[in-house]
């Protein structure tokens, strides 16, 4: 342990045997008053949001903003191009031909919303982030396979290594280890 002691502690990682044990454990972590913690699972687990007391995702607002941008941008573009900049008389139709603009307005609204949904999600999740102290833990590879983990981070105001360990042990963790910053 002499080499690891010189590094900064990132947090304590505990593995649980199944999704149910993880949900119960995260409820206990919340109850104990920790808030700088996260759980890691190979798939989204039902009910873990309630157990972890997660706030509602802000993604909807981001997507709505993008939808408005796509909608108004499409109309503004077509209005500028066919009414202001270069009018073309096509079979005597009005230059501002609202019904004919519906399809393109719709498509661009969807396109911008989809950009908002995907990139907004990555933004909220802090991705891309290719380096992560957890990736140095060999066992953590199971988090994308069949492992269910909780990690309480050292920057949590209540963090005390022995108390965290004790909490995990009581919650029935199958494996507990320290994670260090690189």
């Amino acid at each position: 342990m002499s080499t690891t002691e010189s590094k900064n502690l990132y947090g304590i990682l505990a593995e649980f045997k199944n999704p149910k044990a993880l949900v119960d454990a995260s409820a206990k972590v919340v109850e104990a008053g920790y808030d700088k913690f996260d759980t890691y699972t190979p798939f989204p687990v039902h009910g873990i949001d309630k157990a972890m007391n997660l706030p509602k995702s802000k993604l909807g607002y981001i997507v709505f903003g993008h939808a408005l941008l796509g909608f108004s941008g499409a109309i503004a573009m077509m209005y500028f191009m066919s009414v202001i900049d270069y009018q073309i008389n096509i079979s005597g139709k009005p230059f501002f031909n609202a019904p004919a603009w519906v399809p393109i307005t719709f498509e661009l609204t969807v396109l911008l919303s989809a950009f908002g949904a995907v990139f907004g999600m990555f933004f909220l999740n802090g991705l891309p982030k290719l380096s992560n102290p957890l990736f140095e833990v060999e066992r953590f590879k199971k988090a994308t396979d069949d492992g269910f983990f909780v990690c309480i981070e050292a920057k949590d105001s209540k963090f005390q290594a022995d108390l965290v360990r004790q909490l995990f042990e009581e919650a029935g963790a199958t494996h507990i280890e320290e994670v260090y910053e690189q």
Partner: peptide
């Protein structure tokens, strides 16, 4: 992209 499987993510 550095996906960890975090529940918050």
């Amino acid at each position: 992209l550095g996906w960890t499987g975090s529940s918050r993510a």
